[in-house]
Amino acid sequence: MHLILFILFAGLAIAGALNMLLQKHPINSALSLIVVMTSLAVLYLMLGAEFLAAAQVIVYAGAIMVLFTFVVMLLNAGREERTLGSKASWSVGFPAAVAILAIIASVILKAQGLGNAMLGDKITSTEQVSAVLFKELVLPFEVTSVLVLIAILGAVALARRGDGEERKDRR
């Protein structure tokens, strides 16, 4: 059961990531990225992270990807064209990426005593997570809220159309 679930959703995640790479149109890439994030949420659930699975679906697959698809539609982004730069980046970037994968995989495979994951083992409830988050780590949590506030203000300031003079001209 556990093995079937893992193979199914790991395969779905890798297939979605590959599809994101191979698609030419950004909206197709965005939709396959949603598949990756949702299957990662299932993998989190299999590792016993209940709260993170829910947060992954709400924050990533919900909020962030809706933002992405809206920007793709807003900017009317079309298919990417092949240029000299894209050919060069394929020929240089692909071997570099394979080298990175080889290095990381060799380190992981060399590591001993990682143990096994059992289904239903070490389930962390939201209560346990919030007990740590709101007692021990309450200061970092509040700092994060300030960060999000600054991000909102920055996004509004950056995406605002023009400056004050332009608006006066229009009137």
Binding site: L3, I14, M20, L21, V72, S89, A97, I108
Partner: peptide
């Protein structure tokens, strides 16, 4: 399931992300 499988999956996804970062020509 050995936990190293999850780590390998994570490495594969990271590498695909790196490849996309290097290869794709669209800002989004």
């Amino acid at each position: 399931i050995p936990l190293s499988w999850y780590l390998i999956l994570s490495a594969v996804l990271f590498t695909l992300g790196v490849t996309g970062f290097l290869v794709k020509r669209n800002l989004i």
